[in-house]
Nucleic acid binder design. Structure first.
Lengths: 188, 188
DNA sequence: TCCAATTAGTTTCGACTCAATACTAATTTT
DNA sequence: AAAATTAGTATTGAGTCGAAACTAATTGGA
C-alpha cells in the first residue's frame, strides 16, 4: 500500500522532469531525446561514448539514435571521430557549445532548490533509497545499470596507487570514477 | 554536491521507468503517451477527467492530446461523453478494457519488488522526501501539482461527516480523496 | 438583451521521433 | 579464407508534437 504511494509520487516527479526537459530543449531548438543524449555524453566515461551505448542508455534502437546524433552533430553540439583501434566504432565528444548547454540543462532542473531545506544526512538517505530502487528495477527488468564507476563491483580501490577497472585493468582517476559506464554492475 | 548525486540517480530512474513504459505499451499497440493518458484517467477524480486536464497533466498542448485521445477511443480503451451542465466539456471514462490495461501497467512497473526489503517506515520517509522534492520542483517551475485530494489544502476533514472539497463544497468519499485532482494545491 | 470575449475541444499542417528493415564496413570466429 | 558477429548508417511508414485556424458553448459586459 505504501509502495503504491511512493510509486505515484515518483511517477509524477518523472513526468515533471520530462516536461521541464522538453521545455528547456525547445528553447534551444533541441528535441528532448537530443538533450538527453547530449547530457549523457557529458557524463559518461571513455568506454561509453558510442552511439550503441547511447541507444542502450536511452532504451532506443541504434537506428533511431543514429538520427538524433546526426542532428546534434549538424547543429554543432558534438563531434564524431573514428576509434583508432576498432575502426567500426564512432566516438562521440560534445563540443564546448554542447557541454555548456548540457551544464545549463542540468542546472535548470537541479533538485538543489527543492532540497534546500533538507539537511545533507537526509539527502544521503534519500539517494541511497533511490539507488536501491533503481537497482531493484534494473534487476527486475534486466536492464543495464549505467552507474558511475565508484559504485561498480569491478572498480578496485588500490589506495595510494589509485583506482583500477577490473574489466579493462586500466587505471582510473578520481574524476574517472564519477563518470557513467555502460559496463557498470552493482556489487552482488 | 550531494543533491547532484540524488539528481543523477533520480534521472536514471525516470529514464528506466520511461523505457519500461514504452516497452509495455508497445506490446499492446499503444504509444507511451497514450499509456500515460490512460493511466491518468484511471486515477483522476471527477473534476479532472477532461482532455484539457490530461493536457495539463502531461504538459502537452490540447491539440496534441486530442489526437492521442482519439486513438484511445478508436481502440476501445475509453469513451467520451458530453458533460450535462456544460456542453463544451467532454468527459473521458476508461472502458473496462482500458482500466484493466492501466492496472496491468501499474503492476508491471510497481516499485513493490524493488522495495521488498525496505521496511515500511523507510518507505514512508522516502515518499515524504519525494513529495517535498515534487512540491519544490512544481513551485520552481510554476506547474500544477496534480496530487490526490487527501494531501490538498482545500480538502476538509469533517470527521464523522466525511470529507468536503473546499473549492466545490461537494462531499468526498474515502475513495474520492485518493484520486488525482487538477485543482490540487499543497498546504502553504 | 445582445455582442464580444473566453473557454473546451477538434482539425490540419509540417517538422520530427521511432521501430523495423536492409544495408556497409570492420572485426572476430571457425 | 569464409562465415558470423558487431558498429554504425540509410530508408520507410506510422505516429507524436506544437502552432495555428477553426467550431461551438458559455460568460460578461454595455
Amino acid at each position: 500500500m505504501s509502495a503504491q504511494e511512493a510509486n505515484d509520487v515518483l511517477e509524477r516527479l518523472c513526468n515533471l522532469q520530462r516536461m521541464e526537459a522538453r521545455a528547456f530543449g525547445l528553447r534551444y531548438g533541441l528535441q528532448p531525446v537530443q538533450m538527453e543524449a547530449l547530457t549523457y555524453l557529458t557524463q559518461c566515461n571513455r568506454y561509453s561514448n558510442t552511439p550503441q551505448a547511447v541507444a542502450e542508455y536511452l532504451g532506443l534502437t541504434k537506428g533511431t539514435v543514429s538520427q538524433s546524433l546526426k542532428v546534434l552533430e549538424q547543429k554543432g553540439f558534438l563531434r564524431k571521430q573514428a576509434d583508432n583501434e576498432d575502426k567500426r566504432i564512432v566516438r562521440l565528444a560534445p563540443t564546448t557549445k554542447g557541454s555548456n548547454l548540457a551544464k545549463k540543462a542540468l542546472f535548470t532542473r537541479s533538485l538543489e532548490p527543492a532540497l534546500a531545506k533538507t539537511d545533507s544526512i537526509k539527502i544521503a538517505e534519500l539517494t541511497s533509497a533511490l539507488r536501491s530502487i533503481l537497482r531493484g528495477m534494473q534487476q527486475v527488468h534486466g536492464r543495464k545499470a549505467f552507474g558511475a564507476c565508484h559504485t561498480c563491483r569491478f572498480n578496485e580501490n588500490h589506495e595510494k596507487n589509485g583506482y583500477v577497472c577490473g574489466l579493462t585493468r586500466e587505471p582510473l582517476s578520481v574524476q574517472d570514477i564519477q563518470l557513467i559506464c555502460r559496463e557498470h554492475q552493482y556489487p552482488h
